[in-house]
Computed example of a mutant assay.
Amino acid sequence: MGLAINCCLAQKIIPLYPGKAPGSESWLWKEQNLGGYLKDVTEPTLTAFIPDNPNGIGVIIAPGGGFHFLVYELEGTAVAKKLNERGITAFVLKYRLVHEDPAHPYYSQIMKEKNLKFLDSVNAPVVRLALQDALTAMKYVRQNARDYNIDPNKLGFMGSSAGGTVAMSLAYNATEENRPNFVASLYAYGSAVIGSKVPTVDTPIFIATASDDEFGFASYSVQTYSKWIEAKQPAELHMYQKGGHGFVMKKQNLPADNYLDRFTDWLLLEIYPKR
């Protein structure tokens, strides 16, 4: 595929379903764009970001946001553009979210109080829909990999926070047609993950989090790393002393600022080194 076609594909928006997304046909509210944050997503899509010189590796990115928002620019499009600089083709997943009644808002308060049990009870049905969106996205990209200059056997999935929940749920529930060849889990929220059995098929994992994560998500990352090692699966863990929650594309003058370089080094030098 030549550069002219690459330019046409750059930031192409791909609906995941031909009509209403299965399981949310009755949702009537409208999606809101709050300046880089999305809310009330009802129509899941992928947005393709195509590098000038693709190296055959593809990554689907699931931003975080507690299943009530998507931190779409900071944890999605900004990451995709940085991956493009290393020749990696990226797709930002816009997955379905919880609709919060505008007359009775609660999200900001429960996050302030860190009342994650209540959040889990509200989120649970939508986490399953988000997982379905991830599975559908993986199937689409694998089936159309050649159109994007991607090797269908070099297609992975990365997610941060709630997106990390989606990434881990995908790893535990995928079938041959939609399983990721590698996974990146960034300060994932473990309590909402669907499934727990490490894949038997070779599935390298990259994990990054911070010890001072204010929601206490560091321990889940360590547990995931240990499970992968026990299963004799390839695994790399970066546990930063500082960085807090949500360090994906923040500039804090800390080592965690460079996590994406560590991820791409892992992909290009360890998982898919040039022969």
Rank of each mutant, 00 (worst) to 15 (best):
G76C: 10
M111D: 03
V92Q: 12
T47C: 07
K117M: 05
G56C: 09
P125A: 01
K81E: 07
P152M: 14
I110K: 00
E85G: 05
V141T: 07
F118A: 06
Y140V: 03
A90R: 07
A80I: 02
A78N: 11
A130R: 01
V92L: 13
Y148H: 07
F49Q: 06
G64A: 10
M111I: 02
I88F: 10
G58W: 01
H104V: 08
E75Y: 09
Y140K: 05
R142W: 09
G87D: 02
L83W: 01
F91L: 07
I88M: 08
R96S: 13
V79Y: 11
V92H: 13
V71N: 11
S108M: 12
V79E: 09
N55Y: 10
R146S: 04
D101C: 11
L131Y: 00
A48V: 15
Y72K: 06
N53H: 14
E73C: 06
N144V: 02
D151N: 06
Q132L: 12
V92K: 12
I50R: 15
H104M: 11
Y106I: 03
E75K: 09
I110D: 01
D101N: 15
E85M: 12
N115D: 04
N149K: 08
G56M: 11
V127Q: 01
V122I: 03
G156E: 01
L116R: 12
D101I: 08
K114V: 03
L70H: 10
I50C: 09
G65M: 13
F91M: 05
S121V: 00
I61Q: 05
N153Q: 11
V71H: 09
I50P: 04
T47E: 08
T77D: 05
G58Q: 00
N115V: 00
Y72P: 05
K94Y: 15
S121Y: 01
E113K: 14
V122G: 00
A124S: 13
L83A: 10
T89D: 04
V122C: 04
F91S: 04
V127H: 01
I110V: 14
Q143P: 04
P105L: 13
Y72M: 12
V59C: 03
P51D: 14
A124C: 06
D120I: 01
K82L: 11
H68N: 13
L119G: 08
N53V: 00
G58E: 02
A78Y: 13
A80T: 01
R96E: 09
D120G: 04
V79S: 07
N115C: 03
L97D: 08
V141E: 12
A124E: 15
Y107Q: 04
P63E: 14
E113D: 15
E73D: 14
G56D: 08
